[in-house]
Amino acid sequence: MVLEVVSTGGTIASTGDSGSGVEPELSGDNLVADIPELEDIADVRTRDFSNIPSPHFSIDRMWELSQTVRKLDADPDVEGVIVTHGTDILEETAYFLDLTYGGETPVVFTGAMRNPSLQSPDGPVNLLTSARAAVDADARGRGVLVAFNERVHPARDVTKVHSTNVDTFRSPESGPLGVIDETRVTWLRRREESSPTLDPDAAQLTNAVHAVTVTADMNPAQIRAAGDAAALCFAATGAGHIPPSIVDPLFDLKDDDIPLIATTRCPEGRLARRTYGFRGSEATLKELDCYFSPLNLQKTRIAAVLGVGTDSLESLFEQP
Rank of each mutant, 00 (worst) to 15 (best):
residue 174 S to P: 01
residue 197 T to D: 09
residue 256 D to Q: 14
residue 266 C to Y: 09
residue 145 L to H: 08
residue 1 M to S: 14
residue 194 S to A: 11
residue 268 E to P: 00
residue 209 V to A: 10
residue 76 P to Y: 06
residue 82 I to Q: 06
residue 3 L to T: 10
residue 175 G to L: 08
residue 273 R to F: 13
residue 256 D to R: 15
residue 139 A to H: 00
residue 58 S to T: 15
residue 54 S to K: 07
residue 79 E to Y: 06
residue 299 K to N: 03
residue 128 L to W: 04
residue 226 A to W: 04
residue 316 L to K: 10
residue 301 R to V: 07
residue 15 T to A: 12
residue 208 A to D: 15
residue 68 T to M: 08
residue 150 E to K: 13
residue 125 V to R: 13
residue 259 P to W: 06
residue 241 H to Q: 12
residue 147 A to Q: 03
residue 188 L to W: 02
residue 55 P to K: 06
residue 191 R to D: 10
residue 160 K to A: 07
residue 273 R to S: 14
residue 247 V to D: 04
residue 162 H to R: 15
residue 7 S to C: 09
residue 141 G to M: 00
residue 292 F to C: 00
residue 253 L to H: 05
residue 11 T to F: 00
residue 107 V to A: 10
residue 166 V to G: 01
residue 301 R to K: 13
residue 204 Q to M: 13
residue 274 R to D: 15
residue 201 D to I: 05
residue 240 G to V: 01
residue 146 V to W: 04
residue 38 L to R: 06
residue 19 G to E: 07
residue 203 A to K: 10
residue 121 P to G: 06
residue 237 T to G: 09
residue 145 L to R: 01
residue 120 S to I: 03
residue 217 D to W: 06
residue 176 P to G: 08
residue 16 G to K: 02
residue 148 F to K: 03
residue 191 R to M: 02
residue 171 S to T: 11
residue 182 E to N: 12
residue 292 F to V: 01
residue 31 L to F: 04
residue 299 K to R: 02
residue 196 P to T: 09
residue 154 P to C: 12
residue 154 P to Y: 07
residue 280 G to T: 06
residue 9 G to V: 07
residue 57 F to T: 14
residue 247 V to Y: 03
residue 280 G to E: 09
residue 206 T to V: 08
residue 50 S to I: 04
residue 5 V to G: 03
residue 292 F to M: 02
residue 150 E to Q: 13
residue 271 L to P: 00
residue 100 T to G: 01
residue 267 P to Y: 15
residue 156 R to Q: 11
residue 42 A to N: 11
residue 246 I to L: 05
residue 277 G to M: 08
residue 167 D to L: 11
residue 99 L to T: 06
residue 101 Y to F: 13
residue 185 V to P: 10
residue 34 D to A: 13
residue 210 H to T: 07
residue 262 A to L: 06
residue 184 R to Q: 14
residue 12 I to M: 08
residue 213 T to V: 11
residue 38 L to V: 03
residue 148 F to R: 05
residue 213 T to N: 08
residue 83 V to H: 10
residue 258 I to G: 09
residue 61 R to H: 06
residue 72 L to E: 07
residue 253 L to A: 08
residue 70 R to K: 15
residue 238 G to I: 04
